[in-house]
Amino acid sequence: MSEATVDAGPDDPRKAGKFVYIAAVVLLCAWVLVPLYFLLINTLSSPEAVNAFPKRFVPEFDLGSLTFFAGFEGMLVALKNSILVAAITMVMSITIGAPAGYALSRFDFKGKGLFRLLILLTRAFPLPLLALPLAVMFIRTGLDDTVFGLALVHTTLAIPFAVLITFSLFSGIPIELEEAAWTLGCTRLTAFTKVVFPLILPGITASAIFAFVISWNEVFAAAVLTIENRTLTAFLLQNLDTSPLHLKFAGGFILVVPALIFIFAVRKYLFAMWGIANR
């Protein structure tokens, strides 16, 4: 910011540095924003315009593609399934992950370091490797092709993040606050509900939303473990080669936008996962 006030000469090296800096910022923004913009244009254009050539650079604000998307056989059911699976994943990963995060931050127990490592290791197994045995097990137990079954798998994927985010958030709350509450008439439970919970609530919400997005974006397990009750990602994948271009665009848009908005809203808490204090 201070460069603006400096009377820079024509061959000032700082000016060149500033140019490179701005160019890099523009390039990185374009990298992310241009595809999103094309997605937006094509979603908000009529199917004819989407399939025509040359492409337009401003949206028509025609809801034709979206209407077609909504009217496509099975699409709304898939959308509903996606939301349902993501919601269940969100609830389960927080109810399991947050207590684990609390325990990790507040208690010393044997194998704590190993436990933390194991949590991360759940992400070390590639899902394709687990898919076949999982599918077999799910068929045996009757969990295959159910919303709950898929939510279970997604919860497994989301839990490490839920644990790590909440662990970091709980660690950011000094134990003295709880101790002070205990000496002021609280039990362990009321100290949690009256002091820790209000402080942690925004972080928990963020962690829940992150779990939601993980499930929302997941495609592999969804494609393998469901047939009739497909989620949106799996449904779009299934119809990828047969569906028209405007359907793909609309579907992509519907998938990307909620995830983007959510992640943007909770970004400051996600940094907490990497140990950057959010206070």
Partner: peptide, 10 residues
């Protein structure tokens, strides 16, 4: 009642 070193004000 207790007073803590780092205050512990909620």
């Amino acid at each position: 009642a207790m007073v803590f070193q780092n205050y512990a004000v909620f």
